[in-house]
């Protein structure tokens, strides 16, 4: 399993990330402890130089992590054909106890690194470098998450066992299953729809009235609402199958890879949404992220809404 070329590639890149992130981590600790913008000592001067290296490294890692995340999901999908019982990435994620945590950690890291970059751009825009200390403090925490992710990824791929039977997404995401998933799927449809569209409408309202904190907060709830409604309702329309709730299958070619579009739109939309809150906290202007957030969130809502409507037009009934 370890020797599948995709997995090896992930390992090689993780190795490079770890190497460079460690360099950046050491620099960050150094900067965090000794940074003093008003000092004119040679030490401060070299720290300022080092901050460029650390920033470049984080930028490099983030720029790669974005496409690599999609590649990771793609790899899970491919490996699923090797595991008995698995039919899509859900089976592989569930094959080991680490899979779910790894996926969540990966997502969290994407947001974290993204916010780091936001902080970085704000920082270098200002000649006084007001956020340098803060951004490296932030990176020290992000680094720990990154190491955790890399270690977990190693453990997960190492403990995948081809001969073990795993569950298919059909049984993992069914309302009969006893896990939290089962409870989520039994939420009744009008409530769920009301919540999902309610959040969205509120978001538009706050957009027009520029209530930034609430807008950011709504984006966080929007991620959760969107994922739950996607699994329990919209997914079934994508599959045109009332019993299939899998959040991974629509990443496959059979559904024209629509999952990648959906998740990317959701990520960009909510990322910029939360970003407005952070910018507000720092007292910066954030018009652009407002617009980007709203555009991508709307795109997401339109896309998922389109599936049931097209289904209704074609068949004349709701699922």
């Amino acid at each position: 399993m370890i020797l599948a070329p995709e997995v090896l590639t992930l390992f090689i890149l993780n190795g490079i990330f770890l190497l460079f992130a460690t360099v950046a981590f050491v620099l960050s600790v150094n900067i965090f402890l000794n940074w003093d913008i008003n000092a004119t000592t040679p030490k401060q001067y070299s720290l300022e130089k080092q901050s460029f290296l650390a920033a470049t490294i984080v930028k490099y890692i983030f720029m790669l992590k974005l496409p690599l995340f999609l590649f990771f999901v793609f790899t899970l999908d491919k490996i699923s054909s090797l595991l008995t019982g698995a039919m899509c990435a859900a089976g592989v994620v569930d094959a080991t106890e680490y899979g779910t945590y790894l996926l969540m950690l990966k997502l969290l890291n994407l947001y974290l690194f993204g916010f780091w970059l936001t902080l970085h751009y704000l920082d270098i825009k200002n000649p006084n470098l007001p956020y340098t200390k803060m951004k490296f403090e932030f990176f020290i925490i992000a680094f720990l998450f990154l190491v955790m992710e890399i270690v977990l990824e190693g453990i997960m791929f190492a403990s995948l066992d081809i001969d073990k039977m795993v569950s298919c997404c059909g049984s993992l995401y069914s309302s009969a299953s006893t896990s939290a998933m089962g409870d989520i799927l039994t939420i009744n449809t009008p409530l769920l729809l009301g919540l999902f569209y309610g959040i969205f409408v509120l978001m538009i309202l706050f957009y027009f009235f520029r209530v930034k904190y609430l807008f950011a907060l709504l984006n966080i709830t929007f991620i959760i609402g969107a994922l739950i409604s996607l699994i329990s309702l919209f997914g079934t329309y994508i599959y045109e199958l009332p019993t299939h709730h899998c959040p991974f299958c629509f990443l496959q070619a059979d559904y024209y890879y629509v999952g990648y579009v959906l998740y990317t739109a959701l990520f960009i939309g909510t990322f910029y949404g939360i970003r407005t809150g952070i910018m507000e906290m720092l007292g910066e202007k954030s018009c652009k992220s407002y617009n980007v957030s709203l555009i991508f969130n709307t795109l997401y809502v339109l896309l998922v809404t389109l599936y049931p409507i097209v289904y209704f037009i074609k068949n004349g009934v709701w699922l």
Partner: peptide, 8 residues
């Protein structure tokens, strides 16, 4: 996978 993995 094994063959190309070893190569890789």
């Amino acid at each position: 996978d094994y063959k190309s993995g070893v190569f890789l």
